[in-house]
């Protein structure tokens, strides 16, 4: 696990100055559920950070803490060097949250008009609609929009104040491939204009496509942090398929194995260390046949990473 020790790190002064937002040793509980455990997260000016994790990992909780929508149980939350509930911070941040229901009888243009009015120096409405791809449907009521269009309205509300810092909580969840790519382009355009963005996602692919830095979170803990390439290396799992008589119990104990499945007459093994597993397999079963090694999908690879951390966590 990578921990950023802001207080006594040797580069702390230069780093914390450029930190736009940070969580420092933050714990957050919902009753008995520990949503975040000792989380350290720093977002620097002008970068786009992806908080990557499965559902229920604590991504949304982290965003809500940074937005000052609720306080942490322990630790410190800072945004622009101040408490996140500071009204001036709200002027400089925009947020796209997961919403169950948006007022459906208001038109797209009206939603944008209202939210723009909250800000000191909002973007012109026409620019907001253009940047969100909503120009042609500005006169439609929210209820009449498709899923992708609805997401774009929420995106428009996040950017309409021309904020310096944007929080996008699962911006592309539930979108089809085309709608997702459209939104990606819009997010990239923000960073080109010098904005700082924290986005949460459970797609490694999305983090890879957009982020300068990926922070992987699982079960309320940060388990990895790095550039998309570094994260991909850590998650470069392989799938081995073969017909063998070695029992499942033994297979589970081979190096880096995260999952063993029976698939008709063959066995499927997911591992982060394919070479060593293959060597072991061949050494232990002379009659092994039908050997295939393929790259695991990105999602499977990510699953491997989160499981590894769960295992390490148990042995700590």
């Amino acid at each position: 696990m990578i921990e950023a020790r802001e207080q006594n790190g040797n580069c702390s002064s230069s780093r914390s100055e450029s930190n736009v937002a940070s969580l420092e040793s933050v714990n957050k509980n919902y009753g008995p559920i520990r949503a975040l455990r000792g989380v350290n997260l720093a977002i620097r000016a002008g970068e786009i950070v992806a908080l990557l994790g499965p559902n229920g990992a604590g991504k949304t909780t982290a965003v809500k803490l940074l937005l000052g929508l609720m306080p942490p149980n322990r630790g410190k939350v800072r945004v622009f060097g101040a408490d996140p509930t500071n009204p001036e911070n709200r002027m400089r941040t925009g947020a796209m949250l997961q919403v169950g229901r948006v007022p459906e009888t208001l038109r797209v243009r009206e939603h944008v008009d209202l939210f723009s009015s909250y800000y000191q120096k909002p973007m012109p409405a026409q620019d907001v609609l253009a940047a969100s791809g909503l120009e042609k449907i500005a006169g439609r009521k929210y209820a009449e929009l498709s899923g992708g269009q609805k997401q774009r309205v929420l995106f428009a509300l996040a950017i309409c104040g021309d904020p310096d810092l944007l929080f996008l909580d699962e911006p592309t969840v539930g979108l089809d491939v085309e709608a997702r790519r459209l939104l990606w382009d819009e997010i990239r355009a923000l960073v080109d204009r010098g904005k700082t963005v924290l986005l949460t996602t459970h797609y490694l692919q999305e983090a890879d496509a957009l982020a300068d830095r990926v922070v992987v979170i699982n079960q309320g803990e940060i388990i990895a942090e790095g550039t998309p390439t570094e994260i991909k290396v850590q998650t470069s799992g392989k799938k081995i398929r073969c017909i063998t008589r070695i029992n499942l119990q033994t297979l589970h104990q081979l190096p880096g194995v995260t999952e063993v499945k029976e698939d008709r007459e063959a066995i499927e093994i997911h591992t982060s260390d394919a070479e060593r597993v293959v060597r072991e397999l061949l050494a232990r079963d002379e009659r092994l046949s039908g050997l295939e090694v393929t790259s695991a999908g990105l999602e499977e690879a990510f699953l491997a990473l989160t499981r590894d951390s769960a295992r390490n966590g148990d042995s700590d």
Binding site: K64, R90, M91, A95, L97, V99, R101, P103, Y119
Partner: peptide
């Protein structure tokens, strides 16, 4: 009740309204 329960009020609260 609907704004609170279905998240819309949070979007408003996160804004400078």
């Amino acid at each position: 009740a609907s704004d609170r329960g279905l998240g819309w009020l949070q979007v408003k609260r996160a804004s400078p309204m």
